[in-house]
């Protein structure tokens, strides 16, 4: 039987070649396609986390911090009124009475 009728060679270029090629395809699908989808999902989660951090730091925190600053300034101004001197409080009270009287006067005319 010359060269065993090339059975081994035929087997090599058909069955063995298919086995090796398909094994590489299965491995590639696993690493690139299915693994790629998972990596893509992980990447999108990472991206949304970064976006969230940006919004948190620059928008939410920014707005909140600004509000806090304004409150602190307003509080500081109000604190100046709190002197502990009875004369000052009476002056403010008298001023308030004058303002209220003026409002009542103008509203009764209308």
């Amino acid at each position: 039987m010359r060269d065993k009728l090339y059975v081994d060679e035929f087997y090599g270029v058909t069955v063995i070649a298919f086995y090796g090629w398909w094994a590489r395809v299965a491995d590639w699908l696993d690493r690139r396609v299915w693994g790629g989808v998972v990596a893509g999902v992980a990447w999108s989660f990472g991206l949304s986390a970064q976006l969230n951090r940006f919004l948190d730091t620059n928008v939410v925190d920014g707005g909140f911090d600004k509000g806090c600053d304004e409150l602190a300034v307003g509080g500081g101004l109000l604190a100046r009124v709190q002197t502990g001197r009875v004369q000052t409080y009476l002056r403010i009270l008298a001023l308030a009475v004058v303002v209220l009287a003026a409002i009542l006067f103008w509203s009764s005319r209308a």
């Binding site: 086995y19 491995d27 699908l29 696993d30």
Partner: peptide, 10 residues
Amino acid sequence: VMGAFAAAAQ
């Protein structure tokens, strides 16, 4: 099938 082929590539 793909599990078996992927094993063959490892």
